[in-house]
Design a binder for these strands. Structure first.
Lengths: 227, 227
DNA sequence: TTAATGTATATTGGATCCCATTTACAATAG
DNA sequence: CTATTGTAAATGGGATCCAATATACATTAA
């Protein structure tokens, strides 16, 4: 006799190990700015927080270092990596290059559902009063527009770059006039996508990113010379 | 009394840990093809080879996974990641985009010593009879030309991409007509760099990469349908 | 004989322990 | 009082051990 099991099985083999969970939490904390430039990450302290030994913590830290989010010195420990103004500038240039390319491919073959989704995020972003949500909604808007580009590696690299400058992006949106400008520019990019105008979407995306860069750099220059 | 010590000190704090050494060795073995697609990496076996416990091995594997060079399944172990033809194609497109951009900036401000160095690598590449050296000399030639672009993050990302397709690049050079063509195209790129023609250098570099991609994909298509 | 089940072994994930190195601070000499 | 030296606590790197899971193989029932 043969019976077919009628239940949804989750792939336990792909379940998260302790190291995965810790890696994810630390990564999020760094990207969102809960952990700041130069903050020391003590293995023991983290292990206690997650109620595990230091072994999975060390694996998580090794991964974060590989991603460039923390810097480790032997016997001294891991600190949250900080970026110089030059490095931040370069990261934005890099994003402009790749995200411009990606949206070009995406817009050519974008699905209607994707456009709806992007519009929803753009509106949510424009409406959101809680500044703590801005960065995430902003990221979701752009990422949605990129989704249909059929280039997973490009997207992965963009994610990595966004992770590295996430903290600063937040500052740009919250502490400068970034939010108002971003709202306007999102409108334009979305309209270009709806019109399937790949060249325009690319140009606007690049300008959007490089504009944010300038605004952020000006802000950080003031901030970093003060104290 | 005060005396100044007159000796060159090496920064021991930056010395390599066991995990660093193992990571580097495994990485090199994967990039150079000593370890092939799908090969299983046993923690115990590697630990024995390096005469250490499994702890540093696991950290090395965690880093390799973060780089995308191996894939881990819980309780099953790590295997060398393999790339589909689509993924390989995308990687080459990605390289064409970034390397084109990078050489544009580099050529504008390239130093004479760098040009000499690049010429030396190009000649060594053209002359080298040992096919095992081709890939490395090829990489050195291009990387030298990119050196003066003043964009470390771009270079780092290129390195990551090259690591992921290193094995296939070797095949392209050795098993197709790649080597002859590469020699010719290197001449052209070098000439453009010497002439400080950034646009031409960019165009030739992109064509060089995309041409290699086509040749490799054709080769792999045959190879992968056979067995 | 074959499919299902049980068992042994291999292998990975994690905890605990130990040693090397750093760091903070006290002790000492000038 | 200051600069050096010595010492103890904190911390990171690694080894060894244990638990959880997977795989291979033997066993059993139909």
């Amino acid at each position: 006799m043969r019976m077919s099991l009628n239940l949804k099985a989750t792939n336990l083999g792909a379940a998260a190990s302790a190291s995965d969970v810790i890696f994810g939490s630390l990564r999020e904390a760094i990207v969102e700015g809960a952990l700041q430039d130069g903050d020391l990450l003590r293995q023991d302290q983290i292990a206690t927080m997650f109620n595990v030994s230091r072994i999975p913590v060390r694996e998580a830290l090794a991964r974060l270092e590989e991603q460039g989010l923390v810097t480790t010195q032997r016997y001294k420990g891991a600190v949250v990596s900080s970026l110089s103004l030059d490095e931040i500038t370069e990261m934005f240039e890099f994003r402009a290059l790749i995200e411009g390319e990606v949206i070009h491919h995406a817009v050519s073959s974008i699905r209607p559902e994707t456009l709806t989704e992007a519009r929803n995020y753009a509106e949510a972003f424009a409406r959101e009063p809680d500044s703590g949500q801005w960065a995430q909604l902003n990221r979701l808007f752009h990422y949605t527009l990129y989704k249909d580009c059929n280039r997973p590696y490009h997207l992965q690299v963009i994610s990595g770059a966004l992770d590295k400058i996430g903290r600063y992006l937040r500052a740009q949106l919250v502490l400068t006039d970034g939010i108002a400008r971003a709202r306007r520019e999102h409108e334009g990019i979305l309209a270009a996508a709806i019109a399937h105008d790949a060249d325009l979407a690319t140009a606007l995306t690049r300008a959007h990113i490089l504009g944010a860069s300038q605004s952020l750099i000006r802000f950080l220059e003031k901030q970093r010379t003060k104290p």
